[in-house]
């Protein structure tokens, strides 16, 4: 086919063309090939949707299976996401308590608070005088009578310091730094729970990722199996079109669209179930939060999350189908 150009010109000469008709690979313009390609895409997208609609129950079951596989990692992700909101709230409450020497007077205590406020790592410092400390203590414990028996206030003045950086290392460093300040008796910081919380968050993230990967594989397998059956049921058609010159891409195309439809349908179902579940859980969660005196906003996927869910489920469906078709096309050889 090196003389393609000259052969093409022969095409216009009837006498020369007659005996040679069709003896060459038909060369069509790029433009018309692109049009044919997009026409086939549209036709297959439509055709595969009709095929799904023709077996509504079977298609729905596949989509439900996909939805279930998608819901678990999504739900976990939502829980983790709302925990993040909680996390930042807790970070804000991560403070160091600086106890001052009992011998210091109120004036000196205020000076020290001023010094601490000027430290680079400190976001804020609130002085709690010995009297205020006593009042808080009494209120918290309800031991007013017992404590009023005491002749003098045993509590030292303290300063509540909010660090700028709440990472455990930074808080630790700041604690050591504050301990050096004159008049400071002791610095208390509860790093253990901060670290625990961080570990927990990391664990949650990894768990979400692992589950996401596992259930994503699950979706691939569900779609793959469904498509395998579809390929099997259209075996004769595949053999015939292969015999008359269909490319692999042509044969694969309707199945890829089926897979994408399954994925999209499953994604939409998952989205709907997540929304319903969110509403269903909203009341008890809200009540629970209130009993802790907290306001809690139920997490939602949001626009971005919904888009990610639908796009990734569609892609997973497409990919699952691609794997199944590619594997099974090798087995189908025209007899």
């Amino acid at each position: 086919m090196t003389s393609g150009a000259s052969r093409r010109s022969e095409k216009r000469v009837p006498e020369a063309a007659a005996p040679r008709r069709g003896a060459r690979v038909q060369r069509t313009g790029l433009d018309s090939r692109v049009r044919a390609w997009s026409r086939h895409h549209r036709a297959m997208a439509r055709d595969s949707a009709f095929r799904l609609a023709r077996r509504p129950l079977g298609s729905l079951l596949t989509m439900v299976a996909i939805a279930i596989a998608l819901i678990l990692p999504c739900a976990l992700w939502l829980v983790m996401d709302s925990a993040k909101v909680l996390d930042t709230e807790l970070d804000e409450s991560a403070t160091l308590t600086v106890y001052l020497s009992a011998s210091l007077g109120e004036r000196q205590a205020m000076d020290i608070a001023e010094t601490l406020r000027a430290q680079p790592g400190v976001a804020g410092a609130r002085l709690v005088t010995a009297a205020e400390g006593m009042a808080e203590f009494q209120q918290a414990l309800g031991l007013e009578d017992a404590l009023s028996e005491l002749e003098e206030n045993p509590l030292p003045a303290s300063i509540i310091v909010s660090p700028r950086d709440v990472s455990p290392q930074a808080v630790n460093g700041l604690g050591e730094q504050l301990d050096e300040v004159e008049g400071v008796d002791e610095v208390r910081l509860d790093l253990a729970w901060l670290e625990r919380l961080n570990r927990l968050a990391e664990l949650g993230q990894r768990l979400t990722l692992a589950l996401g990967v596992l259930f994503g594989l699950g979706v691939l397998l569900i779609v793959g199996n469904t498509i395998r059956l579809a390929v099997e049921s259209r075996r004769q058609e595949i053999e015939v079109v292969t015999l008359i010159g269909a490319t692999h891409a042509f044969v694969r195309r309707p199945f890829l669209y089926s897979g994408a439809w399954y994925g999209l349908g499953g994604g939409m179902l998952a989205w709907a179930i997540l929304s319903l579940g969110r509403q269903w859980l909203a009341a008890p969660v809200q009540a629970l939060a209130q009993s802790y005196g907290a306001t809690f906003v139920m997490p939602s996927l949001g626009l971005e999350g919904s888009a990610i869910l639908l796009v990734s489920s569609t892609l997973l469906g497409w990919l699952g189908s691609w794997m199944a078709v590619s594997r099974h096309l090798k087995d189908i050889r025209p007899r």
């Binding site: 044919a36 026409r39 079109v241 008359i244």
Partner: peptide, 11 residues
């Protein structure tokens, strides 16, 4: 029409 469909001939 199948062979023509495969070759992408205009409908």
């Amino acid at each position: 029409a199948l062979p023509l469909e495969i070759q992408g001939v205009e409908p």
